[in-house]
Design a protein around this nucleic acid. Structure first.
Lengths: 319, 319
DNA sequence: GCGTCTTGTGACAACGTTGTCAGCCCCGCG
DNA sequence: CGCGGGGCTGACAACGTTGTCACAAGACGC
């Protein structure tokens, strides 16, 4: 900027005014400055600008589990689009479900002075963000509640969705119902399991521990578990990776066991067998979180909110 | 930092040394400083640090078409992971195939003083980046070549892949072959079309313009085009959205026309009908671009490279 | 012709941090 | 006892920008 000022024969401050579109500059000078900027290829340093003016950095951070996962990719897409509507750039980072990594990344984002954070929590304690939040950093938790911190939260109706799905299975006369889940360490899995449990208990089905399978981490494991549990009326899969594995095994084996899966997925309507998904709108989930965040950034200082998004049942697959 | 210094009864500089882990500080003083940092909840401002030290910002930018698209999501995942390995944070931005938006976003990223850029080009002229590149900003173009700028580029063997696929169709005795593509305005489409054309011309098949359908933007259009072209031996779909639409129509209609699609996609092995995909490893594509970028950031000043990734044919779908 | 206001411009300090360098103290050596 | 050197510490300036304020020049009213 100093070089531009010298070249245009004006002061530093006048260049600053021109760069910031201040109207208080004579057109003739402004032209000289613009010419000098073009000749020297000057680009204003947004970092220095934000530092001096103490204003917002026009940057937000999104911390998710894994960008490559289509669910999180959809979320990232919506958040990126909302950010762009607010002329804001987006940092994207993946925790890979590692709380240590989560904390490191969040601290790093804070060090970059982001204007706000959207976080899909991996860990249980986000108290390390408290001092930032107290200084006015808006944080929105997405998909799962954060720990040790009062902040806006946007969740799915995991419990109600699974309950409704299992109730439909029960209404269809099914009694021997297996539940496959990843890990009860994950909030969404606990809630979904609780929903299934509520429906089964309400129907008077006795608890059979052999029908609840935890630790189903991937489609291959899901297929193996389904193969092993062959005398079952219906399989409830608490996420879509599990659903896909179960589906593959049921297609291989044949038969008419029912399949209920949490999360819809791409091309589910083309799967070679009917099944039911507990679906929701991931875009709406992300949109709410992003809107909440930018409302906070714009100065909304009402009490922290928790929003819960409904789910609904959809029949999928070719019949 | 001033407050921390006062509280710990040391100078500003000593706090700076402690924060940066300089060994030249007496343990006793360092402890006092650490205590003050904890009490005040001090977090070093990375922006100011980068400004003063003139060093790298430990930030890179990734500009893709659309994060929500699984192909780009995979790329973003690999780039994010590589960035993390280099303790670098990642800006992700979507051009939505709009060259104007692309330029705005890239300029904005430069204003944030990113250490490097990975760009999936939307526009044809990236000359506006020249002054940055001349000042040492590394830029890597991914999936398509950039325009008006000499820079590292990582591409797919679009032409060779399609040629090999069509040659296989020809070897299978197919002669009436339709080609469905999005827009010849897109580099990858032009290359893939050229590959198909090379194979067909080499086999002496006369050019039939009614069998080359441009403007197939989505699965629904693809399905409609396939429905219309019912007297065809084989359909060549130049991206996976087109493949999915064609597949749906072929499943509906039945028959034994061959289907060849560029790009593999998730769950393709579960599709209710056999077909062939021209596949490649999108992670490898991204990994190469990211490695190239970080090598440049680390000081690699060899001539700009263009790397071309091979493709291969895979049989998909249930038989 | 004088004071006052408006408009445009620039000098200077400051944002939060780090590089440079000077200075202090203490040790060991001749 | 004096001197050189190493180990720590701090004062100060600087990174690139903008806020504050002062000032100059012209317009206006009386």
């Amino acid at each position: 900027m100093v070089d531009v000022a010298k070249r245009a024969g004006v002061s530093l401050k006048t260049v600053s005014r021109v760069v910031n579109g201040s109207p208080q500059v004579q057109p003739e000078l402004a032209d000289r400055v613009h010419a000098a900027i073009a000749e020297l290829g000057f680009r204003r340093n947004h970092l220095a600008s934000a530092l001096r003016s103490g204003q917002l950095t026009a940057t937000v951070g999104l911390l998710i589990e894994e960008i490559a996962n289509p669910f999180y990719a959809t979320i990232a897409g919506v958040v990126a689009e909302t950010a762009r509507e607010h002329d804001t750039l987006l940092f994207t980072a993946s925790s890979e479900e590692d709380p240590v990594r989560e904390e490191l990344l969040l601290r790093d984002l804070c060090a970059r002075r982001v204007d706000g954070l959207i976080v899909v929590p991996a860990g249980y304690d986000h108290g390390f963000l408290r001092s930032e939040v107290e200084r006015g950093l808006p944080v929105v938790f997405l998909d799962r509640p954060g720990g040790g911190l009062v902040a806006d939260t946007v969740l799915l109706d995991n419990r109600g969705g699974t309950r409704a799905g299992v109730e439909r299975l029960l209404a269809g006369g099914h009694r021997r119902i297996a539940v496959l889940l990843d890990s009860v360490g994950v909030y969404t899995m606990r809630e979904r399991l609780a929903g299934a449990q509520e429906a089964l208990a309400a129907a008077g089905i006795p608890y059979d521990p052999t029908l609840v399978r935890e630790g189903v981490k991937d489609p291959a494991t899901a297929a193996a578990v389904v193969a092993e549990l062959s005398d079952v009326d219906a399989y409830v899969c608490l996420n879509n990776r599990i659903t896909v594995g179960a589906l593959q095994e049921l297609v291989r084996r044949g038969g008419d066991a029912e399949l209920l899966g949490f999360d819809d997925f791409e091309l589910s309507y083309l799967m070679p067998r009917p099944f039911t998904v507990i679906a929701y709108d991931p875009k709406e989930l992300a949109r709410r979180a992003a809107d909440l965040l930018f409302a906070r950034i714009a100065g909304d200082e009402t009490w922290p909110r928790t929003e819960v998004l409904p789910t609904h049942l959809i029949e999928r697959g070719l019949r």
